[in-house]
Design a protein around this nucleic acid. Sequence first.
DNA 1: ATATTTGCAAAGCGTTTGCACGGTT
DNA 2: AACCGTGCAAACGCTTTGCAAATAT
Lengths: 173, 173
Amino acid sequence: MESRIERLCVERGLKMTGQRRVVARVLSEAGDHPDVEELYRRASALDQHISIATVYRTVRLFEEQGILERRDFGGGRARYEPSEDGPHYHLIDVETGKVIEFQDPEHERLMHAIAARLGFDVVSLRLELFGRRHEAAAPARSDAAPGDPAPGHDSTAASREPRLRDTIKGASR
Amino acid sequence: MESRIERLCVERGLKMTGQRRVVARVLSEAGDHPDVEELYRRASALDQHISIATVYRTVRLFEEQGILERRDFGGGRARYEPSEDGPHYHLIDVETGKVIEFQDPEHERLMHAIAARLGFDVVSLRLELFGRRHEAAAPARSDAAPGDPAPGHDSTAASREPRLRDTIKGASR
DNA sequence: ATATTTGCAAAGCGTTTGCACGGTT
DNA sequence: AACCGTGCAAACGCTTTGCAAATAT
């Protein structure tokens, strides 16, 4: 059957090849923030006939179409997630690499206020919190936690940021 | 005479070579957020006997020593600025690429509140605002604006983010 | 039928590194 | 004198691209 993202592709009149369908499906089913290698791995599991170059091209295309959003959580690799309804940000657990999503209206307000006082309109913004779970604490709902990817090398490019793996999905306000 | 950063190096017992002294000086005098190529350019102007590999190594060393901070404003290249007193963040003018620094106590508070409600302590955070100057607006104080660098290619790695150049220094609260 | 997309391998970019040499302590 | 820092060029990791073959419309 047709994945949510495949539907979006069709709406936009993209030519639907087998490989695009697979990538679309992998993305639709991803509850986390996979990098290209991970997407390639998951896609290959469904269909051998896919090269990593195609994954790169597809991901770029989808991003240009506003279907996907590229994230940079440090580590030199781009991570992707389907565009969602409202804006939300990420808290990365520095111990485990898990990513927790959150959103906060007060924060939105504040960003605009800060920009405004400098004479600017906010076009976009980047916010990532790196945190450590505190001892006896309400364990953030680890619902949704899907089969996990797990990059986490290091060494190159804009790298040398906190190492990480990926994703729990959780809490808002 | 001795630059501010050179002093810090000595305090930490780093071996002071000619090249390190030059990089230290360039950084001390930088009012902006140069990338490695730009540092190399400025350093070369003062002393031919410097290779870009050394700039990379020095910048990494200084960062490990807490003398320098690495920033990522998108564009795939790391940018550097001397560690300052308090934490501050950056607003990047998407038209000109200029970087304006700001800080906001309320924002600090909010970040900790958000993390806390998810059960985390904030270890570090990343925040960048990308904005467009609005029409008839109080022109943010463009004091400090020093001789400007000006990267701004594109094309690779974690790139394909808003293009930009660099720095005006301005406003806090 | 024709314009697009794909796979492969090569190129590109920022950054790091092995090695022999040179300078600092 | 012993060690560490440097220059050069090669290696790296992620991403893009040229080209010929395959495919969607």
